[in-house]
Write a protein that binds this DNA or RNA. Structure first.
Lengths: 343, 343
DNA sequence: ATGAAAGCGCTAACAT
DNA sequence: ATGTTAGCGCTTTCAT
């Protein structure tokens, strides 16, 4: 009973069958130039000996890893985990593994991750940029190692990469249009940091739509910052201290919207009667809270699928075009203001 | 302008410096037997040439991958994504990458994943078993490839592995004790499939606690099944069709509890006044819904940390002991019934 | 149809 | 202190 069984290789199979290693290798790959008989023998023996190819060796030899690296700020934001679901689905279908990494929104961690991934661990990278990142060298460096890159959602003009993004400008624009259509005039905005494309685009959509409605926002109508629930609470407090309440608040993030909503209500402000609230991302909790939160669905899983398909195309030497996904407004109770149209 | 730059290896550095490959290799690893001068020269040149070691080659040579495989049913359940956060934190700290895979609760997908991982891709595996899985050969097979295994939360007696789990029996027991203490007698239970340890343990905790309170549950007090929101809706409908409402429902899952809660309220049943509801897992939405949902916190991130530490100990040849984490009851509005004690 | 041999990029005895 | 050499397990010319 020698329990010290070594990992078995093609040569162990070869030895048992009295053939060469190459024959085993070929038989295992169903190479056409191998006789039916030998092929079957080899495959049966391999199974019996519980042979498993060593992926490391295969990949080293072939020069690729059949693995896609995914770098996101957090995996437990629904937006990102849904996107990852989409990426996995597509990637697995064509034989790729998916290596998932979290930057925790930190520039430095993101840099380290990319450095590590570019040591031959992955053939390509799909990423969504951390918001602390303000220098994009680590992304652009991937090109030196011939690692194709696809960015989704959090993209940057300073990075040369394929992109998959929502039409954030449009989404924001339509939110404002809608709010205006139901009688809101003082439409505030929580904006997210402006070096991040998606947040800047939404900010611009908000601004342009307001102006198209003939409204000039006051200086205190907008605030930029991180996208946490706490940030929303802080914004709500500022608002409560202002002279007049807004008619509506459009937040670039559902989490911020949640903080705003809770803090306003905690202070006796009625939502949506006094202040309507519109979020962005359509997190699952949106329909669970009271009042339920209007938001913009970005089709995150579809984004993930598109990003994966794009990367795979790139890996196959093609030159896929950037993808823009139109968002969809989801109307819920937090904007069911009086005078509104039926939806 | 020759853009066709090849991936550079230690031999390219060696050639430039007129030394041997081994010298470069050693210099890069700060091997003590390398002169200060050469070491610095090599490291500088490596940096200048933008050299990156090929992880595949290193790992093939060393016989390990410095990667931990994580297999969970879904990554976008907060419980799992938090656990993964913990795993990553610990693993990265000691130089391991984390390869995350989703079984989607499917036996077959789980089997394929483990097969793929055992081709030298990972040094060890941390998993939480899919609930469709009823045969555990694929887990037990890992031992043949000398891949240590740690199971967390969803464990099984039929799998030989280190385990990290919550004290589910206790958690359930205390929930029932509490409900009884605030006057509930007819305490129903939504139980999850009974071949899954955690759900069986909670079922038993429920049963034993009831009996300790001198209560014998009716045959229709309990139902087993999947843990989706829809399952909760279905259970609520059954209950509504029964002759008498329960005083309380203890659900083994927050998602099921959510379905129950919404469906009951949709039908005019007051929660918690008529029926109190207690969930399990302490999902973030618990405190966002109305009424907020009482639940049991399992300290998922801590579980992930413990699992990672355990696996790493195993990889280091140690024999770590199983970990049991005591859960904590979180009391919210869904059980704030009349006659209750102050909490 | 099969085998011999080179080599993917690196590490680590074993020299010297 | 540094070089030589033999692999890690596999694929793939190039022979035969």
């Amino acid at each position: 009973m020698n329990e010290k069984k070594k990992k078995i290789s093609i040569y162990d199979i070869a030895a048992v069958l009295g053939v060469s290693g190459s024959t085993v290798s070929r038989a295992l790959q169903n190479h056409p130039a191998i006789s039916e008989k030998v092929r079957e023998q080899v495959q049966r023996t391999a199974r019996e000996m519980n042979y498993k190819p060593n992926a490391l060796a295969v990949n080293l030899k072939r020069g690729y890893s059949k693995t896609i690296g995914v770098v996101v700020p957090y995996i437990n934001r629904n937006f990102f985990s849904s996107a990852i679901e989409g990426i996995e689905e597509i990637a697995n279908k064509v034989g790729y593994d998916v290596l998932i990494c979290q930057s925790n929104e930190q520039h430095e961690k993101e840099r380290k991750i990319l450095h590590s991934l570019s040591q031959g661990k992955v053939d390509g990278v799909i990423a969504s940029i951390a918001y602390e990142t303000n220098d994009y060298t680590h992304f652009n460096n991937l090109a030196e190692d011939r690692i194709p890159l696809v960015l989704f959602d959090r993209v940057s003009d300073e990075v040369k990469a394929g992109t998959v993004r929502g039409n954030d400008y449009q989404g924001a624009y339509r939110v404002v249009e809608y709010l205006f259509s139901v009688g809101c005039k003082r439409i505030f905005h929580y904006a997210g940091f402006q070096h991040v494309t998606v947040w800047r685009d939404r900010y611009r959509g908000w601004l342009d739509a307001l102006q198209a409605c003939g409204i000039t926002p006051g200086a205190d109508w907008v605030r930029t910052g991180g996208i946490t629930q706490d940030a929303g609470v802080a914004f709500a407090r500022e608002i409560l201290q202002g002279k007049a309440l807004p008619d509506a608040i459009f937040s670039t993030s559902d989490w911020v919207a949640l903080g705003i909503l809770l803090e306003l209500m905690r202070n006796g402000v009625k939502v949506p009667e006094e202040v309507a609230i519109f979020g962005y991302a359509n997190e699952p909790f949106d329909e669970l809270i009271t009042p339920s939160l209007s938001s913009v669905d970005q089709f995150s899983k579809r984004m993930g699928c598109a990003a994966a398909r794009m990367l795979i195309d790139k890996l196959n030497g093609e030159n896929p075009e950037d993808v823009i996904i139109e968002p969809e407004l989801i109307f819920r109770d937090s904007t069911r203001v009086s005078g509104m149209l039926s939806v």
